[in-house]
Simulated scan of single mutants.
Amino acid sequence: MSFFFRFLVLLVVWAGVDFCLGRRNQLKRAEVRKFPMRHSDFRLYTCGQTLYDDLFADIQHARHHIHILFFIVNNDRVSHKFLELLMEKARQGIEVRLLLDRIGSHHLSKDSIRQLRENGVHFSFCHTIRLPFLFYSANQRNHRKITIIDGKIGYIGGFNIGEEYLGHDPQLGNWRDYHLRLTGEGVQDLQVQFLHDWRDETKEDLIKESKYYPALAKGSALHRFVPTDGAYLQQAFLDLIEEAEHDLYIGTPYFIPGRKLQRALLRAAERGIRITILVPKKADHPLVREAKLPYCRPLLRAGCSIYQFEDGFFHAKIIMVDGRICDIGTANFDLRSLYINHEINCFIYDKSFIEVVKKEVDQDLENSQLLTLEEISNLPFSKRCKEWLATAVAFFL
């Protein structure tokens, strides 16, 4: 046995043991956290430019504090504009805290970080690679995207900060995503979640500081936030599927539901639920397109409708149940969001706002093409090999 082969075997064994022990350690610390029902007013964004215009304007008008968590801030023109704005506010004496995922925001330069700190921005990476579980910690990401301004305005959704989210990536084209702006009672829960994540990384405990929780008016839309730390998200999705009485819609860039959710979807189809799934036709990561195929075939045979978005790249994370419940957040319908990533979703129970969302969903479906069973059956050997590989590593896609 060659040295390289022995080394490869040892590496695979080490990674497996590291991941299992890291996962076990995470589950020991994970806890179910459900915020109470709140009433807030929402605005939905599906265009990156419109979102950035309003987000940057709200940041510009901040008077007390700005708390921001993103999975990705890139090292490009719009990212620099975003960081310059934060530094400008910090120089004005506004408290600014910026928390970024270490792997997701790896393009951010050391020089940019130095400038942020020199200009008064409280900056930290979260979920850095650390001992003793190196492989597991390298995969566990904080995928939440949260902004709180003065404790009165909140943002949550699928957009990050970068040129591609403006549709400037020539390979992906138009970027279709869903993001929420809210005012009202729910902002306090986003504040708690941000400060919880901030404390975990910096040891600075501000969760009970009253100055970050101003009095908030009651909004019109009933909702609650559901944060998950690599655990309990699957049960939340199972509950949504079980609640469906006639219609279930799932929009996700990565459709790798795993066995339990797949079985729940098939049971829903058996009881007559009309299931519609929207995924992108283009892929922004290797193998994600192939990883969904083993799940698509049984669903298509069961009568589910699966659409592929063709007008650019579809990155929205949304579930709608009977026009009664709408989930918009940061979690994809995939194994990584279910079992590894830290996510936060917003379950909305307001029919009038869900009607607004439904119009966007209908537009998405108009810009999509139905996937047929024939298209993904009898694939050539090379594509079947890619599918086998994608299935083997699906947990880490």
Rank of each mutant, 00 (worst) to 15 (best):
R6I: 00
L8S: 10
L8D: 09
L11G: 08
V13A: 05
D18M: 03
G22A: 05
R24M: 12
Q26L: 15
Q26F: 12
E31M: 08
F35H: 02
Y45T: 09
C47I: 14
G48Y: 09
Q49S: 15
Y52N: 07
D53H: 12
Q60F: 10
H61G: 04
D76Y: 01
R77F: 05
S79K: 00
F82G: 13
E88P: 01
I94S: 04
R102L: 00
L108V: 00
S109N: 00
R117W: 03
R117G: 01
N119A: 08
V121A: 04
F125C: 01
Q140I: 11
I161A: 05
H168Y: 00
N174A: 14
G186T: 06
D189W: 11
L190H: 05
F194C: 02
H196T: 15
E201W: 00
T202Y: 05
S210M: 13
Y213H: 07
A215W: 06
A215P: 00
S220P: 05
P227K: 01
T228K: 10
A231F: 02
L238E: 14
D239N: 08
L240R: 13
E245A: 13
E245S: 15
H246D: 11
H246N: 13
R259I: 03
Q262P: 04
L266S: 10
V279Y: 06
V279G: 03
R289D: 09
D311C: 00
D311Y: 14
G312M: 14
G323R: 10
G323N: 10
I325A: 08
G329R: 15
L335M: 07
L335G: 11
L335I: 06
R336G: 05
L338S: 07
F347A: 11
E360N: 00
V361F: 06
S377D: 13
S377I: 09
